[in-house]
């Protein structure tokens, strides 16, 4: 029953579960970030860069943003479906949201792995 709900027949259920899994994942990753900064709080530029120089931190930052943007995209999509009944307007706003999500994701990917910190 539960597995059937997650097949292509019920795309809404998969979106629902994706959003929840992203939420749980973000909560756990945030806990790790918090612990890391608690152990050794960066106080200047070099110590801040040192935090970002470790690979696991950068991978987790990217993972966090992937979860966050997916979670937010699904959430904003629901909000627009609830409050913007005028279809052309909703399409335009949704397109703007899509571009923002993509842009943010690429920006974080570039900050963590593109630019040489």
């Amino acid at each position: 029953m539960l597995i059937e709900l997650l097949t292509a027949k019920y795309p809404g259920m998969r979106r629902w579960l994706t959003q929840r899994l992203c939420a749980v994942s973000m909560a756990l990753v945030l806990l790790l970030f918090w612990l890391r900064l608690l152990v050794c709080a960066p106080h200047d530029y070099s110590s801040w860069v040192a935090v970002f120089s470790s690979l696991w931190w950068r991978l987790l930052v990217v993972w966090f943003f992937v979860c966050m943007l997916l979670h937010a995209w699904l959430g904003v999509r629901d909000v627009l479906r609830d409050y913007v009944p005028h279809l052309p307007s909703r399409g335009v706003i949704q397109a703007l949201v899509d571009v923002t999500v993509l842009g943010n994701g690429l920006a974080v990917l570039w900050i963590c792995f593109g630019m040489n910190v």
Binding site: V49, V76, V97, I111, M115
Partner: peptide, 23 residues
């Protein structure tokens, strides 16, 4: 809901802060 939308809207600014602080 409202706080979720607010957090989404501010996201580009937070990305910008992260970039600025590291560049």
């Amino acid at each position: 809901r409202a706080s979720g939308v607010a957090l989404f809207v501010i996201q580009p600014w937070l990305c910008w802060l992260l970039y600025q602080s590291l560049v």
